[in-house]
Simulated scan of single mutants.
Amino acid sequence: MSTNALRDAWATLVPDRRDDPGNRHGPLPPLLIALTVVTGLVDAFSYLVLGRVFVANMTGNVVFIAFALAGSHDFSLAASLVALLAFAVGALLGGRLGVRFAAHRGRLLLAAVVAEAVLVLASYLYCLLVPHAETGGSRYLLVVLLGLAMGAQNAAVRRLAVPDLTTTVLTLTITGIAADSRAAGGGDSKIGRRLLSALSMFLGAFLGGLAALHGHAALPLLPAAVLLALACAALATQARSTLPWTGKP
């Protein structure tokens, strides 16, 4: 990896904290990287434990619905539809938060992450307290709780508009690495930040897979809840900030 790519990745993880009008996103990039890891953890749980359904990756659910309608018995039409609906409702609520906190991006993300943390922690505790929570009606309750959480996260992140850090969708990110590269005639593929985003998702999914397959089924939700709690703590320190990054991008 080139020096520029490493510098780009480092600047994403450790942004400049100076009161600089050019510092457009402040502490948001590393927080969004953490949320990308959370996405990988949560989707690992939903797919591997709840049975081939995503609560964050809605592209996958649309495809799963098509497979189920085509006659495949490996995918649940009901579970995918419930996930889509829950995600949409979560996105609607996240959109309302975006309107409520339109003037301060830090408070917007804080509100969304607090709600997400509560829902993920509730899901984890439910799995611990209810036997076979991954089956029957309990399965759908977990899909709803986590779908709401991820929908709210995605709506808030969309409003923040930090380039290349969507926390969920990697297709355009990976496309940008290749399409904007010098080999393709582009000037800058931002490979450092984009690879960091993809690796964060991979890391979350990998750790979530290990936890779900070789530990307790609900275990992927625990580090997700911890990361969300840490993000809440970091954002709480920025709630009164008036630096340029807090305004509209």
Rank of each mutant, 00 (worst) to 15 (best):
L97K: 10
G98R: 14
F101P: 12
F101K: 08
A102L: 13
A103V: 08
A103E: 15
H104T: 11
R105L: 02
R105T: 04
R107G: 15
R107D: 15
L108M: 15
L108K: 12
L109W: 03
A111D: 01
A111T: 00
A112D: 07
E116D: 08
A117K: 08
V118Q: 13
V118R: 14
L119I: 09
L119A: 12
L121Q: 12
L121C: 13
A122G: 12
A122W: 14
A122P: 12
S123G: 05
S123Y: 01
S123M: 00
S123D: 01
Y124M: 11
L125V: 15
C127P: 07
L128K: 08
L128H: 09
L129D: 13
P131R: 13
T135P: 03
T135C: 06
L142C: 01
V144K: 03
V144R: 03
L145N: 11
L145I: 07
L145V: 06
G147I: 03
L148W: 14
A149S: 12
M150K: 07
G151S: 03
N154K: 10
N154D: 14
A156H: 08
L160Y: 03
A161N: 08
A161R: 10
V162Y: 08
V162G: 09
P163V: 03
P163F: 02
D164Y: 05
T166K: 04
T168G: 05
V169F: 08
V169H: 05
V169R: 06
V169D: 11
L172P: 09
I174M: 12
T175S: 12
D180R: 02
S181T: 04
S181L: 06
S181A: 09
R182T: 00
R182P: 00
R182C: 00
A184S: 06
A184C: 04
A184H: 04
G185W: 01
G185R: 01
G186P: 01
G187K: 06
D188V: 02
S189H: 01
I191Q: 07
G192M: 07
R193S: 02
R193F: 01
L195Q: 05
